[in-house]
Design a protein around this nucleic acid. Sequence first.
RNA 1: GCCGGAAUAGCUCAGUUGGCAGAGCACCGCAUUCGUAAUGCGGUUGUCCGGAGUUCGAGUCUCCGUUCCGGCACCA
Length: 607
Amino acid sequence: MSLEHSGGENADSDLYRIRHSLAHVMAQAVLDMRPGSTLGFGPPIADGFYYDFVLSEALNEDDFPEIERRMRRILKQGQRFYREELGADEALARIDEMGEPYKREYAQELLSREDLDGLSFYRNGSFLDMCEGPHVDTTRDIPRDAFKLRSVAGAYWRGDSDNVMMTRIYAWAFDTREALDAHVTAFELAQERDHKKLGRELDIFHLDELVGRGLPLWLPNGAVLREELEKLAKELEFRAGYERVATPHLARADLYRKSGHLPYYADDMFPMMELREAGDDGEAVKEAYVLRPMNCPHHHSIFAARPRSYRELPLRLAEYGHVYRFEESGAVSGLLRVRGMCMNDAHIYCTEEQIRSEFKGVMQMYAEAYAAFGLSDYRVRLSRWDPEDGKRREKYVDNPEAWEYCEGIVAEVLDDMEVDYVDGPGEAAFYGPKIDILCRTVTGREEQLGTVQLDFAQPGRLGLVYVGADGAEHTPYCIHRAPLSTHERMAAFLIEHFGGAFPTWLAPVQVRVITVSDQFDEYGHAVVDRLRRRFVRAEIAARSDTVSKKIREGTTRKIPNLLIIGEREQADGTVTLRRYGIRRQQTLPLDEFEAWIAEQIASRALP
RNA sequence: GCCGGAAUAGCUCAGUUGGCAGAGCACCGCAUUCGUAAUGCGGUUGUCCGGAGUUCGAGUCUCCGUUCCGGCACCA
């Protein structure tokens, strides 16, 4: 059994043994219910375990109570775990007896790969598994009330889509019932922050079957988020010496042929638009266009539009560019994976000497942007090519020296800046290594947010050159970067990160005025007018509801600042401020509030 | 794309063996003019995801498709 999934637990720990043993117990229960099923892997994971099966008859979540019942019965029986070590031939014979084709495949691989003399097996009750262990002594050592089956899912044998699709049953497992309950409660609480749920409740985006899968409609509140993100990016990029460009969402297919994208990525693009013309021998394609899946060829075309001098470098071309990718149907999800998106893109054309400082500049931009969100829970990955991976080898530009050189530069930058990072072999772009910023969604899935990529291939392929100080032509390097990812993915993360309670600078509605009765609406409107004149997104709750009702409504909409206005406030020219999540409120002169909120917004203060 | 599940009002959901499509919230109207998380009364709201089939009769059963959810694979 694979021990790759240590689940954050030491393999010798009690919890690891419990989870690992429960996987066997669950497999025993499932095999009892579905005789003739065969086994894949069944490792412990971060919050429990799973086991993969090729089932003789499908199972679904309705079967969970029965599986759990059988598991508890096994635990009660106190089945002892027996370890047995067999020599290579004996082991294979044993697996054949078991009738486990996938276990046999893996056993053979282990025996050939790892110079092992034999393999170990564990038996408990009627269940026998090829497994390295360790396990508990008896099933009585496993708490009966600290596990819970979670979901049933499909998973390819050994993670390869060319292999059989197995059925994976996930379960939570802990060492006490309290730990399990705490985990389940935390999980359910996290579901409340799901960007799909909050996106609907807070009127941020809408998905319409008729518009198309993966093509979100941004509602007024969502459009504000986009604008604020774009404002932030433009400020950071302006200060860092970027120039803005604007380019069309589509291009002639020839552009993508020349860039080399088309032959390799046609399947991931929307189908080509072909303009046909009648001729002598029927219709012929006159022109073909593609919806662009990336902005680079457009920006490269701007670079190539006229002769470039080394004096212009580094040339930094920035654009929030719309791109369209035909993501596979099963991949599309909320705002996280979409088919039409708007990317915080830029391409930096530079000399070899400038690579390091430009890369550093982009890394600093990340740090500044993420600090503005208070986003600190992310991992940095150095994404390299993997020349060993035969299946993927063809997707990389074949130039081992360039790979080695560029990966060296990127690693050097990270080391120089003392950034902690994880290694990501096989995660590179086809044209070069990259640094990716990975964040976790509320459901625990890790996704790539920002990226910086060092491209040693495309400029040459497209014939981009600049004239150097020596009067000769040179090929520039290109850095592709998207620190703020796409609006879609960034918004998804920020919605979950803030649980929908955005800081004032980012909030769709920054201030809502609540009048105690409509006698004070006139003053309320005056307050709103003054705030709006300073570009504060303020509105008035002008309904004849009770104050309680309006406060409840403002709070459930997670509006950061509620202003209560009644007789006292009107008489004194003050407002009473009730901030989101803070029960204590304060009354202050309107002037003072105006200055305060302007400062909150300008400084992008966090709550 | 693959495995499993789901789709009923704007939202959350109920709908029995196939027999008149419902509730709460939201929305609209009227009354209320209110000081800190739901004022009262009344009303509107439907391609029961789409198409085909079975049936005297389909929200309910069957088939095909679409979309969504949980995963896997993919993510230039």
